[in-house]
Structure formats: structure tokens, C-alpha cells
Design a protein around this nucleic acid. Sequence first.
DNA 1: GACGATATCTGACTAACGTCAGATATATGC
DNA 2: GCATATATCTGACGTTAGTCAGATATCGTC
Lengths: 290, 290
Amino acid sequence: MLDPVSRVRRFNRAVTSAVGALDTSFLGRGRPLGAARVLNAIGHGRTDVGEIRDYLGLDSGLMSRLLRSLEDEGLIETTAHDDDARRRIAKLTAAGKREFNAYEAISNRQATDFLAHHTQREALLAAMDLIASALGRDGTALHETDPRSEEARYCLGEYYAELARRFKQGFDVKLSRDPDAKDMVRPRGSFIVAMSDGLPLGCVGLKGGGREYAEIKRLWVAPAARGLGLGRRLMDAAESSARELGIALLRLDTNSALAEAGQLYRRSGWTEIPRFNDDPYPDLFFEKRL
Amino acid sequence: MLDPVSRVRRFNRAVTSAVGALDTSFLGRGRPLGAARVLNAIGHGRTDVGEIRDYLGLDSGLMSRLLRSLEDEGLIETTAHDDDARRRIAKLTAAGKREFNAYEAISNRQATDFLAHHTQREALLAAMDLIASALGRDGTALHETDPRSEEARYCLGEYYAELARRFKQGFDVKLSRDPDAKDMVRPRGSFIVAMSDGLPLGCVGLKGGGREYAEIKRLWVAPAARGLGLGRRLMDAAESSARELGIALLRLDTNSALAEAGQLYRRSGWTEIPRFNDDPYPDLFFEKRL
DNA sequence: GACGATATCTGACTAACGTCAGATATATGC
DNA sequence: GCATATATCTGACGTTAGTCAGATATCGTC
């Protein structure tokens, strides 16, 4: 009655009918679902026709017709791509933006309604994050970014908050050897965030600059995405950045309170070494030769 | 970036594409989705044609045609309903059962694959249960049943296990005034379980028999369904059963460790009264006049 | 047994979706 | 410049899904 497989299947059924309801709510604007989807994809910033086609899984003939119908309605305009005139770029017209906003309002309304009808908001949201991350795992993309970017600052904020919760003595960034942002930007180092559908799910910093080694800093994975191998992917990405930058030796420090992290390092070729700095927080030190 | 609405919408997007993949996996057996859905509904025990139509939200014309196509394939047989010859009953033939099992195998396979690809199995399953309950809230049906039925015993087992976890001194049914099953069956009392899509989500017992009052016993709601108002619905159902049985006064005992329960009783018209039994576990006693 | 209500079926029709072959224009490599 | 590859578009077609009006059979009630 309660075996894991039937629980998953129950979830599938519940979600299938919810999705059906969600789809039909998009039909109220007198436009078939296909056209509405294309319009929304464009509104969300996917301008390249081929990209939209892949994203929605459409046949090129169908895609072309849907674009045409939106164009006939005066909602979009298509132009040739600057670098490659075979490719087409679609953009919303003013009317298209209004129409797109109407769809956005429907979506937002539904999400708000859903939240309003349930008392356990935080638990529900956490569950949704977890499942979205699990389902969209392959959709989680790693991007190199400036550590001062919005998504990077968000990750770092969550990271510090978590350290403060998990360290017995709390955590204060100012007491730690906070790396200079410039040391985590090329050519000295790099900073990588994992983004899934607009939500930052993790980060890692590679701090170079002057020494015979570079350091891995600020490895963090959002609770909603743990256990999905994202930490490993981030570390792999940081290592390949390091290789590109010609770095031969990596070091990192961590704390034994962060058991998952220690395990990850040990399992991926790092070896424990003696303390190599005087930061008050770490009590475990690792090294890896590339 | 992280407001609740966009988190819900991210979930919707993730789930929409997952559901799409799930649907297309059903197309591999050379049968359109509509027919496959009807076949599966029948296989899952929905035999009444009208019920299937409601469940799948189909037009009667379309439904009829889909039944016909399954019949032509030799997968189902339809007969008239015993009591009402206008209604039709659909049943799987031997070939239909084989075909249905093939679809079941696809579904099970997918669920197993999903679980196999993730390390956080328990967290994921808990999240799925929660969301399925939240989405399928209106689909949660209350049924009166024998307290010795499979679903009732499951609920009671979970209930006892939870008491054992939450009471400092643990919980042993044998020490408690375990109600006789017969006192929770009509005409003395009743026992109600909440079922959502095959999963028991909660229960409540109405224990009558001889005294000037009847008692509410064994109110339990699955963790995955808390905060959705199910406790209230179960209590309401128990009260209307009591009214039907001509019971004028209800009592119940509970423990202050179960804070949610106490709140629910106070909010729905119960008043605290002095101890009225010598059960060792409860320390709070309530009464309600109908 | 007549009447209205109900459950299902049939026929006629339309919209939406999906597919395929070939046309057109542009890009890339030799 | 030519052959080949790529991106999009057009036309033709078939399937699926959905809708509506009316036919048929049965039920419940007077």
C-alpha cells in the first residue's frame, strides 16, 4: 500500500491532473496552447527560433506555422540573426508584451491561489523546490559569473547563513579570510553558479592569485538540490577552470561539522594535509594535484 | 529571485515537462493516449462507464468511441449494469489484462528509475506525498469502514507509532483503553478513513456502546496531509455519524503533547472537561454536545 | 402505460497537432 | 566557385481530440 513505487505513481497522477488544469487555464485567451507556449517562451527571453523549437520539442513545420500565426496577430516580429541570416530571431511587439503579461498574470494568479489555499506554505515550497530540482536535474546549468553578481551574492548569503547555523560557535564572515572578489575572476580565478530555471542552486569559487596553489572556496549546494550530485559537478567545473588557468595545485579548507563536504572531497581525489592557514573556522585541510 | 510565486512556477515548469515525458512514454504501444487512459482506468478497477468519463473528464461521445476502439481491439468487454441497464460496465478481457499489465510495467519502471537516480529517496518521497496530498485535496474521500480493514489497520499502526515517538514515556496500546472494534462499527459507532488515490491519509473512530456519551478515538492524519484541513473534515464526518446514530454527547481524551489536536478541538466547539477515565496516557479531556 | 429524466451511442463536424517531402536561402569548407 | 550542410518555410496529409445535435434504450414515477 505504501511502497515507494506507488507513492511516486500517486504523485504522478496528482500532478498530471494539476498540469492539465494549468494548461486549460491558458486556453482562455482565444489562442491554442501551442501558440500560447511559443509566445511565453519568447516573452521569457528565448528569442532564437531554433532554441524555442528545441525547448518545446516542436517540429520545424509546426513551429514555423505557430510563429506565423503569432505574427499575423501582431504579437511578434521576426528578423534574421545578425551573424547568421538563416536563423531567425523572434521578439515581442508592444501588443505581444501586453498579451504576454496577461499570461504571466494567469500564472502568477494560480501560484498565489495555490499558496493561499494551504497553511503549510514553507513545507510545501521546500517540497516543491526539492522535486523541481530532482526532476530538472539535467536542466541545471553551471555558469561562470562574477562573484558580485546577484545570483552569486544570493548563494554566498545562503552559504554564510548555513555556516552560522551549523557551526557551534556561529560564523562571521569578517573573521574569516574572505576572498577578494578579484581573486575569483579570470584570469586569477573563477566563480561558478549552478542555475536551474532561474533559481540559483549552488556555487563554488576558485581563488587564485600569486601563490603556488589556488584555493577552492565557498562550495555550497541549496538544500533543495542535495543528493543529486550537484556538489560533484561544481567541483569538477572548478577543477577544469583551474586547469584552463594553468593551475597545478589546489587546496581547500573545511570544517568537520560539514560532513557531506568532507566525504565529497575524499571521494574525488583530494588528500588531507596539515593546516596551511590561520583562518579560525576550518579544522580540515585538503589538497589535490591536477 | 526566490519569492514564493516563482518557486511555485518553477515547480510547475519542471513538472509540466516531466508529465509530458510520462505521457509520451504511453504512446509506445500503438494506441492513442485517450484510449490508453481509458484502458488504465478500467484496469485500476473503475468499471462503471460514467465514472470513468467523470474521472477522465471526457465527453460522452468521445468516451463511447474510445470504448468501442478498445472493444474492437479485443481488450475490453462491456455489459449492462445489473441494476440499471442504461449504465454500462466495462471489464478487461484476458488480452486486455495483458495490455494493462504492460502499461503498469511502464509506469512502475519509470517510478523505479526515478527513485534509482536519486540518493535522497526518503526526502523525495515525503515531498511527493505532501504535494500529492496538497494537489489532490479535493480528491481525498472519506469512507466509513471496518476498523479491522486493511486501510484502517494501516492508519492505526501509524497512529500508534507516532504516539510512541511523541510521548516522552512512549506508548503501548495494551496499557491504553483500546476500544473494541465492535464499538466502532454501526450501529454502536463508526470508523472513518480518508483515502486519497489509494493511499490512506487519516482516520477517526467513533466509539459508542451503552454509555450516555460516545467517544472520539484514534484521530490521525498522515504527516503528508497535515495542514490541509483533513483533521477537521474527519471530525466533522465523525460528528455527523454520531448524529445519525442519535448520539447527543461526545467526549474525547488527548495528550497535551499533541498540540495540533488540542487546537483543533478548541477551535471546533469542544470544551475542556475534567478527567473522565483512568487511561494512563491522556491528560486533556473534552466534550461536545451535538 | 405514458411521461420526463438519464445513460449511452451515432453521425457530422472542427480545431489542433504532428509528420513528411521538398523548396528556399544562407553558411561553411574545399 | 562549387558542393554540402544548416535553418527555416510551405504544402499536403493523417490522426487525435473535442463538440454538438439527435437517436435509442432504460429507469422512475404518476
